[in-house]
């Protein structure tokens, strides 16, 4: 999922750590000192791989959901846990080199609630374990056996408690979970569970709202996934009404060109990975948000599957006022295919 934003978030943690301070954004593409590097033809081992991989510099558990309230109102939620390693080792105590960062958000058609947490892993305040699976930071947690998961987060003005039930298999992006991010070969390990049915409660200031919907959980880890000339990222996860799904992203480059990638997912969970160029997304309208001005209506195409849709934000001001700001919110899909999904945009100034 939104590699760029996640990378930027992790970059901040790295900056905090002073490790890549001098390298800036470009530092992400450079040699990872001592960290493991993703290799082609991966073999995944579950549930172990649901847990953390401390040998890799960055990793995330990233969940977005489209939901509906009793009155038909659309809602979106985000739950994210980032891991950023200052050194390729686990450990205990305050000085253990694993930092954790949590982002949570709820988006309504009129409001966008955001909060952030940051903690050190060595003292148990944040972390992840594969079996029984749990990923947490403070009181936020994602727990279960991946067939069912329960998830919770709170902020100063919102909170949620939801249950997730998998209704399809895990999806592996790119080449069996080896996802290439640039023409020069930077890559990550990337798999998803896009088939979660969601049932739970949003707590907003006006009271609790029961919601149902569908959620998409991404897992990704790497040590150097972007190349030096990549400036930002537009990422789409779309669920169509006919049961098929599509993940597509554009990595924008300093020269104005972009690197694209997409995965087509049938209702049964069969996947087709599309190389650079097959997937296209072009901005139609921009909106001024609490942060930068960003495109909030897009034309998205995957001609090979006859996809030519308009993707529009449910709330154009879904700006994430986190330590690395970005845009992330629920979208509606119309055109050749109807449906809903999530959009994430990073690197807009």
């Amino acid at each position: 999922m939104s590699v760029n934003n996640r990378i930027m978030v992790c970059l901040v943690v790295c900056l905090i750590a002073g490790q890549t301070a001098a390298q800036g954004f470009a530092g992400l593409g450079m040699d990872a000192e001592g960290f493991a590097i993703p290799q082609p033809d991966p073999t995944f081992d579950f549930p172990t791989d649901h847990g953390p991989h401390p040998d890799y510099r960055i990793e995330w558990w990233y969940l977005t959901a489209n939901m509906t309230g009793p009155d038909g109102t659309d809602y979106g939620l985000q739950w994210t846990l980032f891991r950023s390693a200052l050194a390729p080792q686990a450990g205990e105590g305050w000085s253990a080199p694993q930092l954790w960062l949590g982002h949570a958000a709820v988006t309504t058609p009129t409001d966008h609630y955001v909060t952030e947490r940051i903690a050190r892993g060595g003292i148990g305040q944040a972390g992840a374990v594969p079996d029984p699976f749990s990923a947490w930071i403070d009181d936020w947690a994602l727990t279960g056996d991946w067939q069912t998961l329960s998830m919770t987060a709170t902020g100063p003005d919102f909170g949620y408690d939801v249950d997730l039930t998998a209704q399809g298999p895990l999806i592996f992006h790119g080449d069996g979970g080896y996802s290439v991010k640039s023409a020069s070969g930077q890559a990550s390990y990337y798999y998803s569970q896009p088939f979660f049915a969601l049932d739970g409660t949003l707590s907003l200031q006006d009271g609790d709202i029961p919601v149902t919907g569908q959620a998409w959980l991404d897992r990704e880890w790497s040590s150097q996934p972007l190349s030096a000339d990549q400036t930002g990222w537009d990422w789409f996860s779309l669920s169509f009404d006919d049961g098929s799904k599509m993940m597509g992203f554009l990595l924008r480059q300093t020269d104005g060109a972009s690197y694209s990638s997409a995965t087509w997912i049938t209702p049964e969970g069969q996947t087709t990975a599309y190389p650079n160029g097959a997937f296209a997304a072009d901005p139609l309208e921009t909106s001024a948000t609490s942060g930068a001005t960003v495109p909030t209506t897009w034309r998205v195409q995957l001609p090979d599957r006859g996809v030519d849709v308009t993707v529009s934000a449910i709330n154009t001001d879904a700006w994430m006022t986190t330590s690395v700001p970005y845009w992330e919110g629920p979208v509606r899909v119309t055109g050749s295919h109807a449906g809903r999904g999530y959009l994430e945009m990073t690197g807009y100034e």
């Binding site: 905090i16 750590a17 002073g18 490790q19 301070a21 200052l86 305050w94 000085s95 930092l99 940051i118 903690a119 050190r120």
Partner: peptide, 25 residues
């Protein structure tokens, strides 16, 4: 703990320019 400290406690400029990586080492 600079990661959880409220802005008003601790040394004046720790949140700003300081190299928190070295601080946490």
């Amino acid at each position: 703990d600079p990661l959880t400290a409220s802005g008003g406690i601790g040394p004046v400029d720790l949140q700003g320019r300081a190299d928190i990586g070295a601080f946490l080492s």
